[in-house]
Amino acid sequence: EEAFGDILKTDFKPYRDEMIISSKAGYEMWGGPYGEWGSRKYLISSCDQSLKRMGLDYVDIFYSHRFDPDTPLEETMMALDHIVRSGRALYVGLSSYNQQRTREAHAILKQLGTPCLIHQPSYNILNRWIETDGLKTALQDLGIGSIAFVPLAQGLLTNKYLNGIPAGSRAAQDKSLHPSVVEKAVESVKKLNDMAQARGQTLAQMSIAWVLREGGITSALIGASKPSQIVDCAGAINNLDFTPTELAAIDAISEEKAINLWAKSSE
């Protein structure tokens, strides 16, 4: 965020009102009992620290990034409501909450008068928990937008790991992607890559197109370290359609290797 804050000051400041900037809180940021999860103190302090690091007066969206089983849901939602009413954010959202907790949180926020705008769940070909949990349907029922994070499964659904684990990659550094996960999924990923090539797409492009299929997901959140990766991902829009045969083949591959690195965050 500090590096992003420097870029904001030097390059993006004149375009602030044309940009959507979001932040979130839920995981450990500092020591002690108020350094993570979903208490009012943690959420508001975390938001304030993010604003300071980025040099902003407000963010457009602020998320509660995981359900806290030890804090009343009312407290967490009231903190989000306060963050909006105090001018720290324009809208609030949830991230990783399962469908039951999402429905409960939505009801509280609606009563408070600060509706839940969007949900950010993990979702990709190898991680379809929002379908089995019923979250995808719940979001449509409630009229809540959705933006899928890790649509490329931390880089698994790209050409990065087709020939092993390259130096400097997430898996090589064991940063949220353990080498054993790559080894478990590599054969499935190769099958998906063959399908993508047959469609005239890169694996990343097909994976993003799949997440956005049928309009069930509003948007896909990509993480890029190079401009070329952004260009590649944006190319997904050139072929967003899937045949029933393609979807059935992807379903079969999805069942082979179901990987959800954020399962505990939703419960």
Rank of each mutant, 00 (worst) to 15 (best):
S50N: 04
K13I: 01
L43V: 04
Y27A: 05
Y42F: 15
S39W: 13
S46L: 07
G35Y: 02
G26R: 02
G32V: 00
Y27S: 10
S39V: 13
M19F: 04
Y42L: 07
D11H: 12
P14S: 00
Y42M: 05
G31V: 09
P14C: 00
W37I: 15
S45L: 02
E36D: 14
Y34T: 06
G38F: 03
Q49T: 15
T10L: 09
M29K: 03
S22D: 10
G31I: 08
Y42P: 07
W37Q: 15
S39F: 11
G35S: 03
K24I: 15
G38H: 04
Y42N: 09
I44D: 09
E18V: 00
K41E: 03
Y27E: 08
M29H: 01
F12S: 09
T10V: 09
Q49G: 15
D17S: 06
L43I: 07
S46V: 08
M19Q: 06
W30L: 14
S50M: 00
P33A: 12
I20Y: 10
I21W: 12
I20L: 10
K13E: 05
F12R: 05
M29E: 04
G31K: 14
S23E: 04
S22I: 08
Y27V: 05
F12A: 13
K9W: 08
K13G: 01
E28W: 10
P14H: 00
S45F: 01
G31N: 15
I21C: 12
K41N: 00
M19A: 06
W30Q: 13
K41A: 01
D17C: 02
L51R: 04
Q49A: 15
K24T: 14
G38N: 06
G26E: 07
K41C: 00
L51D: 06
G38R: 02
G31E: 14
S39P: 10
G38I: 05
P33R: 09
K9V: 03
A25T: 15
I20G: 02
W30I: 14
Y27D: 09
W30M: 14
K52L: 06
D17L: 01
K41F: 00
D11G: 08
M29W: 01
M19L: 11
Y42S: 09
I21R: 11
Y15T: 02
K41R: 03
S39Q: 13
Y34M: 08
F12K: 06
L43W: 13
R16S: 10
Y34V: 06
L43E: 05
S39D: 12
F12Q: 08
K13Y: 03
P14M: 01
P14W: 02
Q49C: 14
L43G: 04
K13N: 02
G31A: 14
Y15M: 06
K52R: 09
L43F: 13
P33V: 12
G38S: 06
S22Q: 10
M29T: 00
G32F: 03
Y15H: 06
A25W: 10
Q49M: 15
E36P: 07
S39N: 12
S39L: 11
K9L: 04
K52I: 07
G35L: 03
D17E: 08
M19Y: 03
D11E: 13
G32P: 01
D48S: 07
L51F: 01
F12D: 07
P33D: 11
G31F: 13
C47G: 10
Q49K: 14
E28Q: 15
I44K: 12
I20A: 05
L51W: 03
L43Y: 14
S45W: 00
I44G: 05
S22G: 13
